[in-house]
Design a protein around this nucleic acid. Structure first.
Length: 801
RNA sequence: GCCGAAAUGGUGGAAUGGCAGACGCGGCGGACUCAAAAUCCGCAGAAGAUUAUCUUCGUGUGGGUUCAAGUCCCACUUUCGGCACCA
């Protein structure tokens, strides 16, 4: 009689064995096939592990353990993405240094992760705040700078006028300061950008080469937002001066309907002709109002269009040669296209609204709509009218012809544009990687020499954000003041730090050679591990981390650091774990579940099993605490299988090959819930018959091992006298997947009427014979039969005449 | 507004176009127990009938394709996620 399953004792025992003996550490071994399984490394906040981490990590944990049993050399690393706001704010709150807080949090994370029994390669752990790590983050930045992909430019930062502090976007949701609730204003500042737009096409193309879920590809495509159109020059004549306003449009065919221009309130033409514009004062005050509008209002689609005519200036429509008025309006954004549009009110609803409000002409140039009622946004397909030499053409033909026309006149050209903006690569905060640039009064922006990396963060006592919109680093004069590496003049360091997303943009490469002092990633190690085979993470990172890290990898490919353009071969994304009420877990809702409580009450194996069993891995699922009992019962049934183990019993009611196939394929297809269900079913069969063979036991332990490694390791060692990690994941025999007989449902016009049991692969006549023996359809004539071998038979009948 | 995902018993969820509700939870009945917990056995979508059985209905709504539709097509409704005056 075995003892009751004491998970506390057994789980601790195995964790000790795994971690003290480095069971999961791996080294490059050319004899073995590699497999690189990656999870998004956690941000080590003081709150510790939550269920979201567990769900995210457990999937790759299953894959990693399974691949090891299948004989792969598995890299399944862990690290910490530790720079960032929460740590910094918490550190200030408790009056400790962020370094200290980070170290404490990492220690806690490690303990908690190990209490779940994860098979990470612990001795490759990376920490983005470690100078040995961020040395290479800075190195990559300098490479980007060298290639002209990092530049400093004017932009707005979120500034809280009450706290007098620059806020990160996540601290200023909806234009409200997180800390004091005041309205954020935009403050102009020179900050760093990375030219991710230059990689937009490559990032789009690369999606063809990777196995990502379609929803992720589509989201990235939408984020990049490629559009094709034309840039067209509208000449502005004012006295004797001539000035070009380029506009971007996706519909150059509608140019004959362009009855006015609209420029954004920040457009340079307004400054340039300030003295020529009759109502310059009105224009400037409109600009100031627009500038101070909360982003939220400016972006609100439903609000009334406002704008001001720029009096004294006119633009020439290059197709018609006619002068048209110029307006400024805040529905035109400086940051997209050229910051100016040609307004075609007949065929664009926003322009139509604006034209109606300001009583501007609306000229129909594509037939088909009723432009008195609303704009007719004809897709490719209409016929051109009122369009001079374009009349009668299709939209497609018109686009070609007008672009040719404009090119010949030097007034336009075909152009693609992207919604994605360049990556604002800066924060005015302490706890981040210092940007390794020196500002020299003579030489300008000079990179810190490579041999002086890492440029370490100075040890500041006061890390509070500055009230002057400068980084706290600017207060550290000793650090700030330096010599120019080129001309040795007195110079100052760049004081902005890198954003949250810097370290995570390349950490997966560092895992391959975490301690290499000479390379970001050691070439030999890279040649072995190459691409990440499978990367699991959250949907919330699709348009941030996932796109940033693809960008950096593309760049590192272009400069020869890595051999593959795309970093990740396969990506999956877990669905959220929701509270029992079906809402997002949050402290304010009071529907959170403490991970450690679950482990203490039920054990890590139960937690792991339940979080996978709860529903489709990729869909959101509510945590229903009652449901966990099912997994407790399941594992205790596994434990008690020993009681009914028989040496040489012959069992035929459980098809082991089918079970192996089911579980194997379900794991690979991220259908963990049905894999576990299949194992539960197998146990039901076994307990109903009351005995289990050794082969069945062995198979079930191995199949279950990735999900519940503690209990299966213990049982395997006890019964088979061998460590389970030395065993091999079971394989199935394709030829043994079916039993000798099969039950065929008998339908009449699609409705179930009965069942017959026939030998596998029976012919139709045999099945029909079996049906007539049953006595079904005695009083009916069978008009037609549809028979699918081993599956179903459907009969079309009519009453006997 | 645009893009994406989803809607199945009391409940979480299963179902390569082929027996809807696998596997769980909860529920009900029984066994064990002085009793309870735990455990084990059994029942269980809804309605109806001539009730050992059988029939009809049933996967958000309305149509369609098919021998056969939760699954495919068309049109909607609702919920969730993302983007959003993107020219």
């Amino acid at each position: 009689m075995p003892s009751e399953y004491n998970f506390k004792h057994i789980e601790k025992k195995w964790q000790k064995y795994w971690y003290n003996n480095n069971i999961f550490e791996c080294t490059e071994d050319p004899e073995m096939q590699k497999f690189y399984a990656l999870i998004e490394f956690p941000y080590p906040s003081g709150a510790g592990l939550h269920l979201g981490h567990i769900k995210a990590f457990t999937s790759m944990e299953i894959i990693a353990r399974k691949k090891r049993l299948e004989g792969y050399n598995v890299l399944f690393p862990i690290g910490y993405d530790a720079f960032g706001l929460p740590t910094e704010n918490y550190a200030m709150h408790v009056k400790k240094h962020p370094r200290v807080v980070t170290d404490e949090n990492i220690k806690q994370f490690k303990e908690q992760l190990q209490s779940v029994g994860y098979s990470f390669c612990w001795n490759r752990t990376v920490d983005t705040t470690d100078p040995h790590f961020y040395k290479w983050t800075q190195w990559i930045f300098l490479k980007l700078f060298e290639k002209g992909l990092a530049y400093k430019s004017h932009t707005n930062v979120n500034f809280c006028p009450s706290c007098k502090v620059v806020l990160a976007n996540e601290e200023s949701q909806d234009g409200i300061c997180d800390r004091c609730g005041s309205e954020i204003v935009q403050k102009e500042k020179d900050v760093w950008f990375l030219k991710i737009r230059e990689y937009a096409d490559k990032l789009l193309d690369g999606l063809n080469d990777v196995n990502f879920p379609e929803r992720i590809k589509i989201e990235q495509q939408n984020w990049i937002g490629k559009s094709t159109g034309a840039e067209i020059t509208f000449k502005v004549k004012c006295d004797n001066e001539s000035y070009d306003i380029p506009v971007y449009t996706t519909r150059p065919d509608t140019i004959f309907g362009a009855t006015f221009l609209v420029v954004s309130p920040e457009h340079p033409i307004l400054e340039k002709f300030a003295d020529k514009i009759i109502n310059a004062k009105e224009i400037l005050s409109y600009r100031d109002i627009a500038k101070n509008k909360k982003e939220f209002d400016r972006v609100n689609v439903n609000k009334d269009k406002t704008g001001v005519e720029v009096k004294g200036l006119h633009a020439i429509n290059p197709a018609t040669g006619k002068a048209i008025p110029i307006f400024t309006a805040d529905y035109v954004m400086l940051g997209y296209g050229t910051g100016a549009i040609m307004a075609v009110p007949a065929h664009d609803q926003r322009d139509w609204d604006f034209a109606k409000k300001y009583n501007l002409p609306i000229i129909e140039v594509i037939k088909g709509g009723d432009i008195e009622k609303e704009a007719y946004a004809a897709k490719i397909g209409g016929t051109m009218v009122n369009s001079g030499f374009l009349d009668g053409l299709t939209v497609k033909q018109a686009i070609e012809k007008i672009i040719k026309f404009l090119e010949e006149k030097g007034l336009g050209f075909a152009k693609t544009d992207f919604k994605m903006k360049d990556w604002a690569f800066n924060r005015q905060r302490y706890w981040g990687e210092p940007i390794p640039i020196i500002n020299c009064p003579h030489c300008g922006q000079v990179p810190v020499p490579y041999d002086q990396l890492p440029l370490k963060l100075p040890d500041l006592k006061n890390i509070a954000p500055s009230k002057t919109a400068e980084s706290p680093l600017s207060k550290c004069k000793k650090w700030l003041k330096t010599k120019c590496p080129i001309c040795s003049s007195d110079a100052t360091r760049e004081t902005d730090t890198m954003p949250q997303w810097a370290g995570s943009s390349w950490y997966f490469l560092r895992y391959m050679s975490p301690f290499d002092e000479n390379y970001a990633v050691n070439p030999d190690a890279y040649n072995y591990w190459g691409q990440v085979d499978w990367y699991n993470g959250g949907m919330e990172h699709v348009t941030r981390h996932l796109i940033y890290s693809r960008f950096w990898n593309h760049f590192l490919y272009d400069i020869g650091v890595v051999k593959f353009r795309e970093p990740y071969l396969r990506r999956s994304a877990q669905g959220l774990i929701l509270g029992a009420d079906g809402e997002k877990m949050s402290k304010s809702r009071g529907n959170t579940v403490n991970t450690l409580d679950v482990i203490n009450t039920y054990g890590a194996d139960v937690l792991r099993t339940f979080i996978l069993f709860i529903g489709d891995y990729e869909k959101p699922a509510p945590w229903q605490a009652d449901g966990i009992k099912g997994c407790v019962r399941f594992l205790s049934k596994v434990w008690n299988l020993v009681d009914i183990l028989c040496d040489d019993c012959n069992t035929s009611d459980l098809n082991l090959d089918a079970l192996i196939k089911k579980v194997d394929e379900d794991y690979e297809n991220i259908k963990f819930n049905t894999a576990i269900a299949a194992l539960m079913s197998a146990l039901n069969t076994i307990y109903a018959r009351g005995k289990i063979s050794k082969l069945e036991f062995k198979t079930i332990l191995l199949l279950l091992n990735p999900v519940a490694p503690h209990i299966t390791s213990e049982l395997y060692l006890n019964i088979f006298n061998e460590y389970i990690e030395k065993a091999t994941f079971p394989k199935f025999d394709e030829s043994k997947l079916l039993f000798n007989t099969v039950e065929i449902p008998v339908q009449e016009a699609g409705k179930l009427r009965g069942r017959v049991i026939v030998p596998v692969d029976s012919e139709e006549s045999f099945v029909l014979n079996a049906i007539s023996e049953l006595g079904l359809f005695k009083d009916k004539d069978i008009l037609k039969t549809v028979y699918v071998k081993n599956r179903i038979i459907n009969l079309i009948t009519k009453p006997k005449s």
